[in-house]
Amino acid sequence: MKNYIVYPVYRMLLRPFFQFLLGIRFLNRKHLKQTPQFILVGNHNSHLDSISLLSMLNFQQFKQTKNVASYDYFGKSSLTKHLTQFWVNGVLIQKKGKKNDGETALEAMDRLLKEGKSLIIFPEGSRGKPGIVGDFKHGVAVLLKQNPGIPFIPVFFDGVGRIMPRGGSFPLPLNSKVIIGSPKYSKSKEIENILEEVRASIFELNPNPMVNHNQFSEEEQFSGVVQTQKQ
């Protein structure tokens, strides 16, 4: 029932709003259409990241796709908890160590995948420092190893973080791109190798992100200009 209310909002309002007003361009959307179940992995800089991805899905996928969100951040009050679960298909996951209803975060995500759900995961965890790619948490690699039949789809967000950066109170229209890669099955067995593969396939989508020629100091900059050097 919920999907019949939320999906039209995404399809009729948010998608045109993102594309025609905010200036987000979605490249290679065909990769999304072909795959029934997937794990979407991308670099993370803005709350818009997952919402813009959800607006690109078709109804069948939208029903099945869950957005992995941190309980610590979105579960602060019952209002944000509700909003996350209802409007952005969120599943709230406790961080490492804490239990959600008797299962760990990884067990909960694994169960969702076994139920046939797709997941949106940002391996960096939080939106992080503006424009800088943080360390990838290895959870996604564990999930891919446990579910070898499910492909991951790498997504590169180039400049989306500038539209609504951390601390920004409104979305500002600026040109940006969401580049969607082709679905991939990880061949490796080692967690570290899978993680490296995921990371590499995200960044090979856009070898030349909007180059940072900013003469201003770091605090002054618009966030979201992605620097791809390895850490």
Binding site: P165, F170, L172, L174, N175, E220, Q221, F222
Partner: peptide, 23 residues
């Protein structure tokens, strides 16, 4: 005109504190 200005603001190396003015 909106698209043109959006392009120029996007490449214009502006600052976080310019956001409200651009809006």
């Amino acid at each position: 005109a909106f698209m043109g200005s959006r392009e120029l603001y996007s490449i214009g190396n502006l600052k976080f504190t310019d956001r409200a003015a651009i809006l």
